[in-house]
Amino acid sequence: MNILDVNGLKVFHGRAQALRGVTFHAREGEIVAVLGANGAGKSTLLGTLSGIYAAKAGEVYFKGEPIIRQSPGYIVKQGLSLVPEHRQIFNDLTVQDNLLLGAFHRYIKDKGTLSEDMERVLGIFPALRGRERQTAGILSGGLQQMLAIGRGLMARPKLLMLDEPSIGLAPIVVREIMEVLSKLREDGTTIILVEQNAAAALRVADRAIVIERGQVIISGKPSELVNDERVQHAYLGRTGGHAGNVAVAFGY
């Protein structure tokens, strides 16, 4: 069953069209990688799905319900959570407060279960344990990313979307985060992973789509994508291709 269906999504930033009719879906319990060069529209896509940007046209169904043009608060309550680009944690607040605020939409209802959920997040990211009272802004980049993901998990999402979680992180931390994503999938969480680091993303993904200039140009299994010329082109065309050697990275 598809947990998310996106049809013909069009989004403008002012006059510039960022998405030109994006269509894709995510099945329950899979990891979908969304690849593409800088400015291709990946972040706009996630921002629109989570209600930050308003779509001009198109349909979005989450668990069969339309969520397009709903508020971010409504969408997160339905179980769709975004871990935004560049972490966007609440710098001046403590790690604990960041996590607790992740559960904002259900705070009144579920007050009793929050410590349990926080325990679960600390179990997933043991590196955060013992730092609950530290100010989030002084954490290292890797820990901040873990905190941002943890904060997203506190919302108890059915579908977790991550926008470039690997950006600026050491390879070992990237590997750790990707392992966590695999583990979350095993627990039944569906994941949409936007990445510049195509090699890392394709390693964990079940399926992948490539976006170029606001449109999905390819979708398929990672094994099909790594050798696709158009994937290489999508990256090489714009960024000079740090992900151009996708196939090499895979040993194909």
Binding site: S50, G51, I52, S71, P72, G73, V76, K77, S81, L82, P84, Q88, I89, F90, N91, D92, L93, D97, L100, L101, G102, F104, H105, Y107, R151, A155
Partner: peptide, 23 residues
């Protein structure tokens, strides 16, 4: 208070606060 921290969260990062469902 939790609500006060939600207000601060909105001041620190409005976009992220929106994503948490803070209006």
């Amino acid at each position: 208070t939790y609500w006060g921290k939600a207000v601060r969260a909105c001041v620190i990062n409005r976009m992220a606060a929106k994503l948490m469902g803070i209006n």
